[in-house]
């Protein structure tokens, strides 16, 4: 298996020394993200996120299945993250690396366990039929901070997604095709976003947001904080690494909250633009009523 190219001593020194002088290689400030951009596909539920040179594609899809026996009233919701050799040749197909496991756990905790998607609304017939929603995350290019980009892509894809409309009459479930009835959005409760801090220095005293690959390779620790714009923490993960002062972690959380509010506003704006673009025909009346609820 080809190995990931590790930074040489000189590169390592260069990045670190620049950081000591409060300089980043791309001359960003410490708490500044690279330009974040999200685009939606022609289909519903496809979101492409680019964060600098990092690029992530998320696609949401839904089908009708049988609910789990122990949760007859809930739908099925899963997030699939498989890193392909496209992101880096060191990722192998069908063999999860540590990065992949941690990424999928983080997304799971941030989006699924925090109850962002109302899984009860996915239930069609209790114990027999439910929607199974799945989000596939594809990392196309890995230039650092895949976690934040993936989380944003997942949330964007799910909020953009429309599942086919259904009706139950006399115990018979009908799933309408998009041609028959306009698909409906998912029951969405809140939008969590991840903000990842990277720590540098002997005691982890320097904290940077949105590290690039080069910075990620020389960092001594990281902490991913997931929040929504209401100021609720969905998860925090500082999984080891060099210990960092508790006070710094609290400051990081406060800054993360302002970033999450920015993300939230940006995504709302983009989704509104997309609805407007699709509604050129003027079928907007019923759709907007749906969305305001």
């Amino acid at each position: 298996m080809p190995r990931e190219a590790e930074p040489s001593l000189n590169e390592r020194q260069f990045v670190l020394q620049a950081l000591q002088e409060n300089l980043r290689l791309d001359s960003r400030e410490a708490d500044r993200y690279r330009p974040l951009e999200v685009t939606f596909g022609d289909e519903y539920g496809v979101a492409k996120v680019s964060l600098g040179k990092t690029r992530v594609l998320a696609k949401a899809s839904a089908e009708v299945t049988v609910p789990y026996a122990d949760r007859p009233l809930d739908g099925v919701f899963q997030i699939a993250t498989e890193l392909s050799p496209m992101a880096s040749p060191s990722f192998e197909v069908n063999r999860p690396t540590e990065t992949e496991v941690l990424l999928s756990r983080l997304l799971e905790k941030t989006v699924r366990r925090s109850g962002a998607l109302d899984t009860e609304s996915l239930c069609l017939v209790a114990g027999q039929k439910c929607w199974s929603v799945r989000v596939d995350v594809h990392v196309l290019s890995h230039d650092g901070n895949v976690i934040d980009a993936s989380c944003f892509a997942v949330v964007a894809a799910l909020r953009h997604f429309r599942k086919p409309d259904t009706s139950i009459e006399g115990g018979i479930l009908t799933v309408y095709t998009p041609a028959e009835r306009e698909p409906v959005p998912l029951g969405w409760l809140h939008s969590p976003f991840c903000v990842t801090w990277s720590y540098f220095g002997e005691e982890g005293e320097m904290a940077l947001l949105d590290a690039t690959r080069a910075e990620e390779q020389v960092r001594v620790g990281s902490c991913t904080i997931s929040l929504n714009r209401h100021g609720e923490i969905c998860q925090i993960a500082k999984l080891g690494g060099t210990p960092v002062e508790a006070v710094i972690l609290l400051q990081c959380t406060a800054i993360a909250l302002t970033k999450v509010k920015e993300f939230s506003a940006y995504l709302d704006k983009k989704l509104a633009e997309d609805i407007k673009r699709r509604d050129a025909g003027g079928r907007s009346a019923e759709l907007t009523a749906e969305n305001d609820r």
Partner: peptide
């Protein structure tokens, strides 16, 4: 006071964090 691991897996108000930490 240096924190090596901090894992929170449940939803909680951001104001609670300081006290818990």
């Amino acid at each position: 006071d240096r924190v090596a691991v901090l894992v929170c897996e449940s939803r909680v108000q951001v104001g609670r964090l300081e006290g818990m930490l």
